[in-house]
Simulated scan of single mutants.
Amino acid sequence: MEKKRTPKNIFVEGAISPDKIAKSIANHSTKTDIGGHSIFLGQVRADKKEEGSVVAIEYTAYEDMALQQAFEIREAIFAKYPLTCMHIYHSLGEVKTGEICLFVFTSSKHRKAAIDACEELVERIKKELPIWGKEILDNEKSEWKVNT
């Protein structure tokens, strides 16, 4: 009987710490059937705009819908690629420039599946999840970010 998957909480309050990333990688060293990992780290950029420079992004989400949609995306990616593991973490709240706001980690027996799945996963997260970022500028103004 196959274990039924349930939605996992993908949200982290604030920036995703380097310790969390390192621990996640280290936790996979005992899984000796894995031959490749692919990792994407989204980092807040210090974009320069007419109105000022970005110093942080404040992330908000329609959490229940985002968790359900993330679950559906995970299931579709697991069905499409022969993955061993998949992890998604996205920040909520304020994340300063230079800090990590998105951590996607896929693992597979062979690198190509991990790489392709990771890339598709990141694209779908950016397009489909109801997560919004308000850019905080150095002049204390803010504006909603448009995903590209």
Rank of each mutant, 00 (worst) to 15 (best):
E13C: 05
D19V: 14
G52Q: 10
I34S: 07
I136H: 02
K127T: 09
Q69G: 01
R111N: 05
E94G: 04
T106C: 08
A26C: 07
G14Y: 04
L83F: 05
K126H: 08
A61F: 14
C118L: 07
H110R: 05
R111F: 01
A61V: 14
A79G: 10
N147P: 10
Q43R: 14
V44C: 02
C118F: 03
K8T: 14
V95L: 08
K134D: 04
E58A: 15
L92F: 04
T32G: 07
A79N: 12
I39F: 12
T106W: 00
V104L: 09
S38T: 10
F103K: 00
Q68A: 11
A22F: 08
G42A: 10
K141V: 03
F103Y: 09
L41D: 08
D47K: 13
K109P: 00
S38M: 06
E50Y: 09
T32N: 10
G36D: 07
S107L: 01
S91Y: 00
I88M: 08
A22L: 11
A61E: 11
P7F: 15
G36N: 11
N147F: 13
E119W: 01
K127P: 02
K96E: 11
T60M: 13
C101N: 10
I16W: 02
S91V: 01
K127V: 06
E58Y: 14
S17P: 04
C85S: 13
S108G: 05
T97V: 14
E72V: 06
A79E: 14
A46G: 12
E72H: 12
N147K: 12
S38Q: 09
L137Y: 04
K48V: 13
E99L: 09
T84N: 12
A61W: 12
N9V: 09
N139W: 04
K141G: 06
F105W: 09
R74Y: 05
R5Y: 12
T106R: 00
T32P: 01
T6W: 12
V54Q: 09
A114I: 04
G133M: 04
I25R: 13
T32E: 11
A46Q: 11
Y89I: 02
